[in-house]
Amino acid sequence: MPISRLEGHILTPRGFVRGTLSVDDGRISALQGEPRNEYAVRHEGLPIVLPGFIDLHVHGGGGSDTMEGGDAVERIARLHARHGTTSLLATTMTAPHDDLVTALTAMGSICEKRRPGTARVLGVHLEGPYINAGKLGAQPDFVRPGSVEELHQLHALAPIRLITLAPEIPGNLDFIAPLLAAGFRVQLGHSAGSYEDGVAALERGASGFTHLFNAMTGLHHRAPGMVGAALAHARYAEIIPDLLHVHPGAIRAALRAIPCLYCVTDSTAAAGMPDGNYKLGSLTVTKCLGGVRLEDGTLAGSTLTMDQALRNLVGLGLEIEEASRRTATHAADFLGLHDRGRLERGAWADMVVLDANLQLQRVIVEGEEIELAHAE
Rank of each mutant, 00 (worst) to 15 (best):
G128D: 08
A229C: 00
I239Q: 02
A323Y: 01
L335Y: 06
Q187F: 10
L358Y: 05
L283A: 06
H211M: 05
P116C: 09
A158C: 00
M67Q: 02
T265Y: 03
F334S: 04
L165K: 00
S4V: 09
D355Q: 10
A271I: 03
I54P: 15
D25A: 11
L360Y: 04
A375S: 12
T210C: 12
R342N: 04
L151M: 11
N172F: 00
R36N: 14
D242T: 02
F184H: 08
S109E: 14
G108F: 12
N37Q: 11
A375G: 10
A72W: 10
L88H: 01
L372R: 00
I54V: 05
H190I: 07
D296V: 14
V58A: 04
L157D: 03
V73W: 12
R326A: 13
L179H: 10
E376H: 11
G272N: 09
A232P: 10
I258W: 08
H83Y: 10
E371N: 08
M67K: 02
H152N: 15
C260I: 10
P116I: 07
L318H: 05
P274L: 15
G171M: 10
L173R: 12
V353N: 09
L358A: 02
A332M: 08
G336H: 04
D339F: 15
L304F: 03
G249V: 09
C111E: 04
G70Y: 08
G189T: 06
H190D: 05
Y39V: 13
A192R: 13
L126K: 03
M216W: 14
G193Q: 03
L299D: 07
D71I: 13
P35W: 01
G272C: 06
I163W: 03
H83P: 00
D71Y: 14
H155Y: 11
D296A: 09
T102R: 15
A133H: 12
L280F: 12
A119Y: 00
L157Q: 01
S64E: 07
R222D: 05
A206W: 01
H245V: 02
I320Y: 00
